[in-house]
Design a protein around this nucleic acid. Structure first.
Lengths: 342, 342
DNA sequence: TTGAAAGCGCTACCAA
DNA sequence: TTGGTAGCGCTTTCAA
């Protein structure tokens, strides 16, 4: 519980000097500096967050947050937005504010525009759910290089020099799905896959992890067919129905995208409820109900709340408290939900 | 982002007066008080934690923490202790310290002694993993009545007037186990149960939730037999072996206690690996390995870290920031772990 | 019943 | 290269 004042007293210097040494601002004679570091070390000094936070108020920090997909189109993002709200409340402690913007998944140009808009607002940090597009990557790389800390959330983008990524490990989620499927089907299944779009990175990673883990570990699982539903319930119903009719031997469905209700409706209308085992991602009220009805066996979930909030905390620590994130990848927990624990 | 100063200025009074009104200390003329409350309301005032935390340092708060079972006897508590350590670090911000004591599960007299020892140290809050015994309950009730805030952790005790409970919902864990068993065994299983001791509340709740959920929802699951292992690996091996020999029709094991390795060894030595499906609680390195080997299918876990840390935060909020806990039961998440996501 | 001021730990700024 | 000081929001104490 040593404070800067303690150190200053012991070293016979002023608090300003100690501050300069510990935070590398301004020049200090190396003798004094060493002495101060030495004392700080033996005292086990660790700065008080409360003190820092109080002092940071004068800075009037502002952060930017760009999220793709609005809450309407995908219920998953409702909890992400709740997390962001909670993060904003925390930042208020530091007198910091957040500028939040939304984009759609398919408009990289617009996303770059939004980035520029926020930068013009003089933000000192940016959280973004980046669209996988060279233009976005280039703009982010440029900003990072210029010293603006960037944190990616929910979806990552390589080689842009960002500070950290917060989100799910989609590949491992896919592996987990494979393991679950193996247990649920007693090591023997013929599987149909429904995916949103091969272009959405998180969906394709989920499929990749799933198939590769099956190849490695579960020879009894066989992937029969795979269809695309573009995350749309109606399309999902159509393509799933067709797949199940085409391959009556399918006895398990792996839903790696949204459009879950549509796929489940296909199962139900073909009279396959309970006979075809269904595994999906993310938990919504719809999923909950479908579990109660015995259509869906299990859902693998992310931590949307954390994925909304944590990135802001990382930026704050970095900018206001001078603390680099302790790791580059903040993978959230991969949870398995069934009827009883959802 | 209104501050006490803002309110004071607008009301034309001093900060002291505002403080007296907002925190109900000292007497204030009701006219002034109303005016201040009114202004605070329209400004949407919410106190700054940083400010409070800084001011709280002068109080030199001290809390007590009594945990039963040492880290040696039960690996689950290693993570609980890690959580406590993290909580202590947080409290340091507030200049608060924690006195930590350990007891064994079977010595309520000793636990009461420890409580008294801590009270003599003039603590302003107590976290305890209480032993289910009238003496403990009575002492806690007495302290709570006298105004000492008490939070129970990991295990609860009724009717002692405690502020809150942080821990798992063991009954619901049992229900979740039933649901999982049903999915893993394709709605049809003959189950053997291994339990630590019918006297340990959390074990009996796990069994109760399990059997009741089976009665309600899963008619294909049949409980064949149940044995007691006193949480000991060697005993566990013996009784599990005997049970499996006595009932060769058993094809699923529900392990509701410690002594997991012993039970699994019985399965292995009888050549039943893979044929008898094993479900257990809490994740340790042993459990991890047994999953890799395909002996254990899944583990249902608590959140030991949170269960160690959260109680301290609740006490701090209550004592230092004057914030009552938002709920009485802080149930931690019931997680399902398989080979891929453990 | 109220006001004034000091102090909790840290940072920023000005003066030396 | 260093010291001194004011101020962030809140609590507490002393004086009025």
């Amino acid at each position: 519980m040593a404070t800067i004042k303690d150190i200053a007293d012991m070293a016979g210097v002023s608090r300003g000097t100690v501050d300069r040494v510990l935070n590398r601002r301004g020049a200090v004679k190396s003798d004094t500096a060493n002495k101060i570091l030495q004392i700080a070390d033996t005292l086990g000094y660790s700065p008080s967050l409360a003190g820092k936070s109080l002092a940071a108020r004068k800075k009037n920090l502002k952060f930017g947050y760009i999220l793709f997909s609005s809450t309407q189109s995908n219920p998953f993002f409702i909890d992400v937005v709740r997390g962001i709200g909670d993060g904003i409340a925390t930042l208020k402690e530091y007198g910091a504010t957040v500028e939040l913007r939304f984009t759609t998944v398919d408009n990289p140009t617009r996303q770059v525009e939004l980035i520029d808009e926020l930068v013009a607002l003089d933000i000192s940090g940016l959280v973004i759910t980046p669209i996988s597009h060279p233009d976005v990557r280039a703009r982010l790389a440029q900003l990072s290089a210029a010293g603006l800390p960037v944190v990616t959330a929910n979806s990552d983008i390589m080689g842009c020099g960002r500070l950290a990524y917060v989100g799910s490990n989609y590949y491992q989620s896919g592996e987990t799905a494979a393991g679950l499927m193996n247990l649920f089907c007693d090591k023997r299944a013929r599987i149909g896959i429904v995916v949103g779009s091969p272009l959405v990175l998180c969906h394709s990673e989920r499929v990749k992890g799933f198939t590769e883990q099956i190849e490695r570990m579960y020879p009894g699982l066989e992937i029969i067919d795979s269809v695309i539903n573009n995350d749309d319930d109606f399309e999902s119903f159509i393509v799933t129905t067709k797949m199940l009719q085409r391959h009556p031997e399918i006895n398990a469905l792996y839903l790696a995208a949204a459009g879950i209700a549509g796929a489940c409706r296909a199962v139900r209308e073909l009279g396959l409820a309970g006979r075809v085992k269904v595994l999906c991602f993310d938990s919504t009220n719809q999923v909950r109900e479908l579990m109660q009805d015995g259509i869906i066996m299990a859902a693998i979930t992310q931590q949307p709340f954390t994925q909304g909030k944590k990135p802001l905390e990382i930026l704050l620590d970095y900018v206001a408290l001078g603390k680099r994130p302790s790791k580059e990848y903040y993978y959230t927990k991969i949870e398995i939900k069934i009827r009883e624990n959802i």
